[in-house]
Lab assay of single mutants.
Amino acid sequence: MSIQHFRVALIPFFAAFCLPVFAHPETLVKVKDAEDQLGARVGYIELDLNSGKILESFRPEERFPMMSTFKVLLCGAVLSRVDAGQEQLGRRIHYSQNDLVEYSPVTEKHLTDGMTVRELCSAAITMSDNTAANLLLTTIGGPKELTAFLHNMGDHVTRLDRWEPELNEAIPNDERDTTMPAAMATTLRKLLTGELLTLASRQQLIDWMEADKVAGPLLRSALPAGWFIADKSGAGERGSRGIIAALGPDGKPSRIVVIYTTGSQATMDERNRQIAEIGASLIKHW
């Protein structure tokens, strides 16, 4: 067993022997301040990774656009098919120029040779490549099948209805392509620590998230040296922004954090800054 596999296998073990965790309302004060600064709703939840206990939450059962955070769930569904012998990570998928959609920095470079399922998941999570996500959605049967996968996990809230990039439209009061912070946090925890996926697939999923290259201005910008984070960000229309993450000190994750916002007129930089400040408060009061 590799060191990384050992780390993920012992996530519940280490967490069980940690000192009790206590909620700190100071972080919620910052979440509410972010709402004021952005002029928009902000949803927040913080779960203990081992027990699933909610440590703090704000608007945990209000719907927010998922945006690209759905790509972690998508690759979880792909990995479940791999575990069941219905898919192979090494299978190569070929596609054409007509398949390319807006923001496809990886797939646009491989029109000639195609990409493997493993490479597509890596591109979808680490670079948020939209064509990679659409190609992977095709392998599982489309958005409705991802929703069905989530329902089978016990998540009857999260739903995907459309493809990239239309799913980022974020129309107010439109339930399409949305989740709730509580539902997303619980589902992410199941994917990373539950028995739904094999140990190898859980490790692969967290490795992809740990290698995320496009979430630097968010929670990662607030992390002290030595902290662990595996995350996936999302951005959408109407001032929408979000991030889902597993993080913790001492090089291992111990909490799940989900943050979503929508309806702001603020710039992307300002949305990023507010999420980073929430992260800084979380870490300060850990």
Rank of each mutant, 00 (worst) to 15 (best):
M1D: 01
M1C: 01
S2T: 13
I3S: 10
V8L: 14
L10R: 05
P12V: 12
F13M: 15
F14H: 04
A15Y: 15
A23V: 05
L28R: 08
D33E: 12
E35M: 04
Q37K: 15
Q37M: 14
L47H: 03
D48G: 06
N50A: 12
S51Y: 08
G52E: 07
G52F: 05
G52T: 05
K53H: 13
K53M: 13
I54M: 11
I54E: 11
L55H: 08
E56Y: 05
F64M: 07
F64T: 01
F64C: 02
M66W: 01
M67K: 02
S68V: 00
T69H: 07
F70G: 07
L73A: 11
C75Q: 01
A77Y: 12
A77E: 09
V78P: 00
V82Q: 06
D83M: 03
A84R: 12
L89A: 07
R91A: 07
I93F: 06
H94G: 10
H94Y: 14
H94F: 14
Y95E: 01
S96K: 11
N98E: 15
L100V: 09
K109V: 12
H110S: 08
T112I: 14
D113M: 10
M115D: 01
L120R: 00
A123I: 04
S128Y: 00
S128H: 00
D129N: 01
T131S: 12
A132V: 00
L135H: 04
L135M: 10
T138E: 15
I140D: 02
I140A: 07
P143C: 06
K144S: 15
E145T: 11
N152D: 15
M153Q: 09
D155C: 02
H156Q: 13
H156K: 15
R159D: 06
L160Y: 02
R162T: 08
W163K: 11
W163Y: 12
P165R: 07
N168S: 08
P172D: 13
P172H: 10
P172F: 09
N173I: 09
E175R: 12
R176E: 07
D177C: 03
T179K: 00
T179E: 00
P181Y: 00
M184E: 01
L188Y: 08
K190P: 03
E195H: 14
T198P: 07
T198N: 13
R202T: 15
L205I: 10
E210R: 10
D212F: 02
G216M: 10
G216H: 08
P217M: 14
S221C: 11
G226C: 09
W227L: 01
F228V: 07
I229E: 02
A230W: 03
K232E: 00
G236V: 02
R241M: 04
G242V: 01
I243N: 02
I243D: 02
P249R: 09
G251R: 10
P253A: 13
P253G: 09
P253D: 07
S254M: 14
S254H: 14
V257A: 06
I259N: 01
I259C: 08
Y260R: 00
T261H: 06
T262E: 10
G263V: 04
G263S: 08
A266K: 13
T267R: 11
M268Y: 08
D269E: 15
E270M: 13
N272D: 09
I275A: 02
A276H: 14
E277I: 12
E277C: 08
I278W: 02
L282F: 08
I283T: 09
I283A: 08
K284E: 15
W286P: 02
